[in-house]
C-alpha cells in the first residue's frame, strides 16, 4: 500500500517536472517575441489616444504605483499618456490600459491594449465613462458596481495614472 502511494507521488512529480521543463524551453524563445509584441501594441496605442502625436518618455517619480508602467509627454503640449497594467479577476493575463491626460488634468482618451476576461464586451464603450474625469472625480464614476474586480481594478489604475500625472506636472 505504502509502495503504491510512493509510486503515485513519484509518477505525478516526474510528469510535472517534464512538463515544467517543456514550458521553460518554450517560454525561453517566446518571451522576447511576446515582449516585443506588447511594446509594439503600446506604441500603437499612444497614437490611438493622441493621434498624430510625438512622444517622449518621462521618468516615473519615485514611489509611483506599480500599475503605472510608463509615462509619456506629448511634445507639442497636447498632454501626457500613461501606460498602465493591472490585474482582472478571471483573466489569464494582465489588463493593459493606455490613458491620455490632457493639459487640464482630465482623462481625454483610453485604449485597452490587452484584455482577455470577456470577448469584446465593453472594451470600447466602458472606458468612455471615464472620459473627462480628473483626480478629484475619478472615484465618482457610477458605471462600476463594485461587484466585479476588473472594473474596480480599472478605476484604481486610472486613479494611479492621475496621481502620477499630478506629480509629473508639478515637477515640470
Amino acid at each position: 500500500m505504502k509502495k503504491e502511494y510512493v509510486r503515485c507521488v513519484a509518477v505525478l512529480t516526474c510528469i510535472c517536472l517534464v512538463v515544467a521543463v517543456l514550458l521553460a524551453v518554450t517560454n525561453s524563445f517566446t518571451s522576447p517575441v511576446i515582449a516585443a509584441n506588447k511594446e509594439a501594441a503600446v506604441q500603437a496605442s499612444l497614437q490611438e489616444v493622441i493621434p498624430g502625436g510625438s512622444f517622449e518618455p518621462v521618468d516615473l517619480p519615485e514611489g509611483s504605483p506599480e500599475t503605472v508602467t510608463a509615462f509619456y509627454r506629448e511634445t507639442s503640449g497636447k498632454g501626457y499618456v500613461a501606460v498602465l497594467s493591472t490585474v482582472s479577476q478571471y483573466s489569464n493575463g494582465d489588463m493593459g490600459i493606455t490613458a491620455a491626460i490632457d493639459s487640464a488634468g482630465a482623462v481625454s482618451a483610453i485604449a485597452i491594449t490587452s484584455y482577455f476576461e470577456s470577448k469584446d464586451f465593453g472594451r470600447t464603450t466602458y472606458p468612455q465613462n471615464y472620459y473627462g474625469v480628473t483626480k478629484d472625480t475619478v472615484g465618482g464614476v457610477d458605471a462600476f458596481a463594485g461587484a466585479t474586480y476588473s472594473s474596480t481594478a480599472f478605476r484604481n489604475a486610472l486613479a494611479d495614472a492621475l496621481a502620477v500625472y499630478e506629480t509629473v506636472k508639478g515637477g515640470d
Binding site: 512538463v19 517543456l22 514550458l23 518554450t26 517560454n27 517566446t30 517575441v33 511576446i34 509584441n37 489569464n92
Partner: peptide, 13 residues
Amino acid sequence: GFVTIVQLLMEAY
C-alpha cells in the same frame, strides 16, 4: 502543459 505551450506560441507568433 500542451495548452500552455500552444498559448505561448500563439501569443508570440
